[in-house]
Computed example of a mutant assay.
Amino acid sequence: MTESDEVYSQGHAQSVVRSQHWRTVDNSAPHLAAELRPGQSVLDVGCGPGTITVDLARRVAPGGVIGLDAVESVLAQGRDNAADLDNVEFRCGDAYTLDFPDDSFDVVHAHQVLLHLTDPVAALREMLRVTRPGGVVAVRDCDYSGAIWWPADDRLERWREVYQAVARAGGTEPDAGRRIISWAHAAGAVDVTPSASIWCHSSPDERAWWGGMWAERILDSRIAGRALEGGHATREDLAAISAAWSEWAQHPDGWFSIPHGEALCRVTE
């Protein structure tokens, strides 16, 4: 199976891609930041609209960065975001069969990619293959069972149930964060430095953005279609979940956080 044969559970609806535009090295790759140096070559696997890719390119210039994604339409947004840079390019590609020779990059990065793949170990093995000795593979994935919020709301518990059911029905693992080390070891990584960090959304602006995004996403993205088709939720369920997110976004005490497992896999001789 190639990556393009698989179905990205969240799809590329506007509500999904819009949330990805917020991501940077600081908020989505903190474990990698200290490893970045001018002149490095970087591959960003599963780059989406490329905001992390662009940040990587600025940090390693004049080194070159390639953003790779399986969907051409989202790569067009990456090219727009990188319009002022001359050291970054975007290509369509497959995480399972990276079209690069062995030892091609100093850094290979993947954010929120492994949890959407049916064979994350195979993808990690490819990332290790194209990384030079002394270089690093940096991965980070969230863990949905670890998400917490306030105020308590059974409808948001239902959101998590539906999300996890849809993901697992597609053969992917939504609680990827806690499995990062085991997947890295299974892929053959020997020198693995694990860590964890969280996203926290609790200010009025953060609540409006995160809650509004999920209120829309649970109704109009691929998640909604797969939830209905698979019998994981009814339209009434999804409407109730959407309303819960809208209410949470407006609550002055609203809090949401979700943990991420991270790993730096240093490639040895």
Rank of each mutant, 00 (worst) to 15 (best):
M1A: 12
S4C: 09
Q10S: 14
H12V: 06
A13M: 08
V16I: 11
V16S: 09
V17M: 09
W22K: 15
R23T: 11
R23A: 14
V25P: 01
D26T: 07
A29Q: 11
A33L: 05
A33E: 05
S41K: 03
L43G: 03
G48E: 05
G50L: 04
T51F: 01
V54W: 01
D55C: 03
L56D: 04
R59E: 02
G63C: 08
G63M: 07
L68D: 09
D69N: 01
G78H: 04
D80K: 14
A82E: 14
D86C: 03
V88S: 00
E89A: 14
G93K: 04
D94F: 08
T97H: 12
F100D: 08
P101I: 07
D103K: 10
D103L: 03
F105I: 11
H109N: 11
L115G: 03
H116D: 08
L117M: 09
P120W: 02
A123K: 07
R125Y: 04
R125C: 02
L128G: 02
L128F: 01
V130K: 06
T131G: 03
D143R: 06
Y144H: 12
I148P: 00
W149Y: 15
D153P: 01
L156I: 10
Y163E: 07
Q164W: 02
G171M: 03
G177A: 06
I181N: 12
A184H: 09
A184S: 15
A186H: 07
A189R: 02
V190E: 15
V190L: 15
D191Y: 00
V192A: 09
S195Q: 05
A196R: 07
I198C: 14
S203R: 05
P204S: 10
D205L: 10
E206C: 10
E206F: 07
W210C: 09
M213D: 01
E216S: 15
I218N: 00
G225N: 06
L228R: 04
E229F: 06
H232D: 06
H232M: 09
A233M: 08
E236W: 09
D237P: 06
A239V: 07
A240P: 05
A244M: 09
S246D: 15
S246G: 15
S246E: 14
E247H: 13
A249Y: 04
G261K: 02
A263S: 13
A263V: 12
